[in-house]
Amino acid sequence: MERLKLPATLPSLAAFRDFVSQAAFAAGVGPQLLLKIEIVLEELLVNHVMHAYGSGEGDSEVVCFRKEPAMFCVQVIDHGPPFDPLQRPTPDLELAPESRPVGGLGIYLVKSMSSEVTYERDADRNVLTACFAVTPETELKSQAD
């Protein structure tokens, strides 16, 4: 299990992304699945930047681990007040551009792109865990070619 803790700000996004990419690469995740994992990571971190600490400052922590059978998981943790973004209602995807609200799609993408995603409140921490099935087609091809 590997972890990285940085301020919950947009400039931290790149470092978190590199950190997760390396862990995913080591776990045999292929490039297409990696892009989905990066999207889920960004949505969860941006959620922190916008909501977790109000106007104050705090840290985001990211943990990567493998889970049997063949899952790669990314955990995103903050120390803000209890907040479960997964409870957000699904946006109305049928609305025309003019009447469509500009927000709400991020968490929907998280739910759609991960194999499973859970929220838990652990002491003073919000813990969101997104797991991705590393199936043969999403696995990194052998280095032979």
Partner: peptide, 25 residues
């Protein structure tokens, strides 16, 4: 190669802006 909801928001915001002046994306 990569698009997140922040990108979707920008596209939507541009679509709304051009829509108010009769244009399209």
């Amino acid at each position: 190669e990569y698009l997140s909801s922040a990108g979707l928001r920008s596209i939507l915001s541009v679509a709304k802006a051009i829509g108010t002046v009769g244009g399209k994306v």
